[in-house]
Design a protein around this nucleic acid. Structure first.
Ligand SMILES: [Zn+2]
Ligand SMILES: [Zn+2]
Length: 796
DNA sequence: AGCACGCCGACT
DNA sequence: GTCGGCGTGCTC
């Protein structure tokens, strides 16, 4: 038998299958197996994507070296999907396969240098042992090793390291009868206290064996006693795999099923019908904040399980809170797996294994969970489908929604896209009938909508010395805190955080590799580049003029925090932005501290718009609703509307009236006006008009072509050639914009030139783009790369 | 991506 | 004569 293998070498030239002979001693080789194969001089990891009886390749065939897992990691659906996605996204198939699997299944590579002769072994560098090639650093050593290799006194061993391992627990089981143990106990020496404890436990808790080593240790039985017990055949020692379960300790109470209202029930009926009929239909569930979308999801999942099918639910990373997870687990218990970036690598791998071994049938997770190895899927849900985080912002640049559609087609199951503020893309598709629109117009528990007040900053008086918080806003904040109620304060700004400025010469500390300033990271006391990862120690004098008068400009939230502390005596503030949430789990920590009333104000960037509902929050303040609008991105209005609608939903509960204050310089802008009355449908109408006039999505599809080189003139020249090619090959109606140099000049010493293609129908686009990628490879050989991003999030 | 091979200039 | 720099080509 012969296997077609995709090798773990991400390059254009190796982006194809390589054929290998399957040696008869390798059992369990199947489509989807993770294997080690010889590849040229070295060994690499690979994935079997096809198996056939006859050899296709004309030349000499090598054999597969090794199969790496007991359970075949890739299900056939994903093997097939990887091919489709690689083609659609213009990336290497191996990159897609890696993205589909937990990072634990990524190979590590090592080169060992093995001495072959006695004289070589005797050299101090070997000291009789094999050494790692990476440890050979000095010129003298490199020279020596090269000599040895040339004279065959040493050789290089290429090793593929498999990280995947299960946590092992040691358990002790019993094989004698209770009577036997009583006899053993009777014959023990009088001073064998620990052995007596052990035997008494065996006799008293006979049924609860086998026991884990830890449990026995808790009784005071140490390993020496256990070793003795094993030697005497009282106990048998075994190693078993256990799953690292981060939530094992949490007691989750079964919750009772909530009765749906008529509107929810009607939506559910539509979804259930398609689950039963096994129809790959896409629904857009448009439900205002508080309309109970989650309940509909949970009911649909229950229907799915009832039909012996599994269900996949995606939630934005930031909304994947313990509360959210518990809500699902309380309904479906152990049948739920959670794939979450806050888990450790091992925990992620174990959750993934539980899914792969079909031990759970409900998967909840963020973007990458769309590749969960679930079989027999009966329903896919994407909650808050408008969230930009569903699009991965590095290669492979897939959108979870697009992948979901492919998986729903493969599994013949419905897909539910849910949102209070659907993306215009999805809403427009629902309009055209491509998706079926389901609407929830009522708040499920009849909560009042909060009152929204817009503060016109053109006329407002500012409190304090900074021009950010108006007197009106400050007064309401003070009043709310005085009533012992809580406030959420949102700064609508991407985290421009701490950079170094010299007060003497005005120098801003920049990354040497990128045209962008370095950020100060308090936790590691270093300056770091967000684009290339470059790091240096925090300077104490200006690197340019050596003046000591350097300052580290705080983030916007930090400034406001300081101001509020000045203006409101004894105020307690929790700040939440990229600076305070960099550490794992800190995001949750801040939220729960605020929930427990440890602060009066939760101050933060966009990330506070999601997550928990705080019953004691009666005031939500948006400091600046305009920053989002000012960004010259075609979807700035949509993003602002989404954000405002979402935060407005945070204020007020059934018993206390909520108030939302929005400060803006554009009080008449439709995004702000309509968000204040939570009128999504009207916003949709207005925004569609704007998009139509501007030739923007969803009236056009977009593709961003980036031409990248270390050599700026080369990048520019090639970009113009690409543009000419595109204009020539694509149809008249298609708009080709650019090339323009990217906003940040260079990133990691590479220059980016971008071309935007807008099209309605372009049958030759894929062909043309792949032609361009090949052409770039041929013409400029080394230093030109062409990256393609379908439906980019940020365009001009 | 690595890794080797080969060609050429520079240096014992 | 040999070391090492880089351009070129291949990996089943
Ligand atoms: Zn200076
Ligand atoms: Zn950088």
């Amino acid at each position: 038998m012969f296997a077609e293998v995709i090798v773990d070498v991400a390059a254009k030239q190796t982006d194809k299958t390589f054929e290998y002979k399957i040696p008869s001693e390798l059992k369990n080789v199947a489509v989807g197996s993770r294997v080690v194969v010889p590849f040229g001089r070295r060994k690499v990891q690979g994935f079997v994507v096809d198996i056939h009886a006859e050899a296709n390749y004309q030349g000499e065939l090598k054999e597969l070296s090794l199969v790496l897992d007991d359970q075949i990691p890739l299900i056939p659906e994903l093997v097939k999907l990887s091919e489709v996605l690689a083609r659609k996204l213009f990336t290497y198939r191996i990159s897609i396969l890696q993205a589909m699997l937990p990072s634990m299944l990524k190979a590590g590579y090592k080169k060992n240098i093995v001495p072959l002769t006695d004289s070589a072994r005797a050299l101090p560098i070997f000291n009789g042992k094999v050494i790692d090639a990476a440890t050979v650093r000095s010129n003298a050593d490199i020279l020596l090793i090269n000599k040895l290799l040339a004279t065959k006194a040493a050789k290089i061993d290429y090793v593929v390291k498999n990280k995947a391992s299960h946590k092992k627990d040691v358990i002790y089981s019993i094989s004698n009868s209770k009577k036997d143990y009583l006899e053993i106990l009777a014959n023990l020496r009088t001073n064998a206290f620990k052995q007596k404890i052990l035997l008494n436990d065996i006799i008293e808790n006979y049924e609860s064996y086998p026991k884990r080593q830890q449990e026995l240790a808790n009784l005071g039985i140490k390993s020496d006693v256990l070793r003795n017990a094993v030697n005497n055949n009282w106990l048998q020692k075994q190693e078993v795999d256990v799953y690292r379960d981060p939530t094992a300790a949490d007691m989750i109470h079964a919750s009772k099923v909530v009765q749906l209202n008529a509107e929810q029930q009607a939506a559910l009926d539509q979804i259930n019908q398609q689950i039963v009929r096994k129809n790959a239909k896409t629904f857009l569930l448009e439900g205002i904040t508080g309309s109970g979308k989650t309940e509909v999801y949970l009911h649909a999942i229950a229907e799915c399980l009832k039909n012996n099918k599994s269900a996949l639910m995606l939630v934005p990373e930031i909304a994947l809170t313990p509360q959210m997870v518990n809500q699902v687990k309380s309904r479906f218990g152990k049948d739920v797996a959670v794939l979450h970036s806050a888990l450790s690598e091992g925990e992620k791998y174990d959750e993934w294994c539980r899914i792969r071994n079909q031990e759970t049938h409900v998967v909840v997770g963020a973007r990458s969970a769309i590749f969960a190895p679930l079989t027999n899927i009966g329903l896919i849900i994407i909650d808050e489908e408008h969230e930009a985080s569903y699009k991965q912002d590095n290669t492979p640049r897939y959108h979870a929604r697009d992948v979901a559609i492919l998986r729903s087609e493969y599994n013949h199951c419905p897909l539910v896209l849910g949102s209070a503020t659907p993306s215009l893309y999805s809403r427009a598709r629902a309009q055209k009938g491509v998706y079926q629109l389901l609407r929830l117009n009522n708040r499920a528990n009849n909560k009042e909508l909060p009152k929204v007040q817009i503060i016109d900053l053109k006329k407002a008086m500012f409190a304090g010395t900074q021009f950010d918080i108006s007197v009106d806003m400050l007064n309401v904040i003070k009043k709310t805190i005085a009533k012992k109620e809580q406030v959420i304060l949102l700064l609508n700004r991407r985290g421009f955080s701490n950079f170094m400025l010299c007060r003497e010469c005005g120098y801003v500390l920049q990354c040497p590799n990128c045209d962008i300033s370095l950020n100060y990271h308090k936790d590691i006391n270093q300056m770091k580049c967000h684009y290339c990862g470059y790091e240096i120690n925090k300077p104490y004098v200006c690197p340019k003029c050596h003046s000591k008068h350097i300052i580290f400009l705080g983030s916007g939230t930090q400034k406001i925090q300081e101001e509020l502390i000045n203006m409101i005596p004894n105020v307690r503030i929790l700040r939440m932005d990229i600076d305070t949430t960099r550490k794992k789990g800190s995001y949750q920590k801040i939220l729960s501290a605020f929930g427990q009333g440890q602060a009066d104000i939760l101050l933060g960037t966009q990330m506070i718009a999601k997550g928990l509902d705080f019953p004691n929050v009666t005031l939500v303040c948006v400091v600046n609703a305009d920053i989002g609008l000012a960004v010259s991105n075609y979807n700035a209005s949509e993003k602002t509307f989404d954000l405002l609608t979402q935060v407005a939903g945070r204020a007020g509960r059934a018993d206390k009236e909520g108030l939302v204050l929005i400060q803006t310089y554009n009080p008449d802008h439709y995004a702000i006006k309509l968000a204040s009355v939570q009128d999504y449908e009207q916003f949709y109408q207005s925004e569609m008009r704007y998009r139509y006039i501007g030739n923007y999505p969803p009236f056009y599809f977009t593709t961003l072509v980036s031409i990248v080189s270390h050599n700026e003139p080369l990048a520019a020249k090639q970009a113009f050639l690409v543009k000419r090619l595109l204009t020539k090959k694509l149809s008249q109606a298609t708009i080709v914009l650019g090339p323009t140099p990217s906003a940040i000049g260079k990133i990691n010493n590479q220059y980016f030139y971008q071309i935007l293609v807008k099209y309605k129908k372009e049958p030759y686009l894929a062909e043309t783009l792949s032609y361009i990628q090949n052409y770039a490879q041929d013409i400029a050989k080394n230093d030109i790369n062409v990256y393609i991003d379908q439906e980019p999030e940020n365009i001009m």
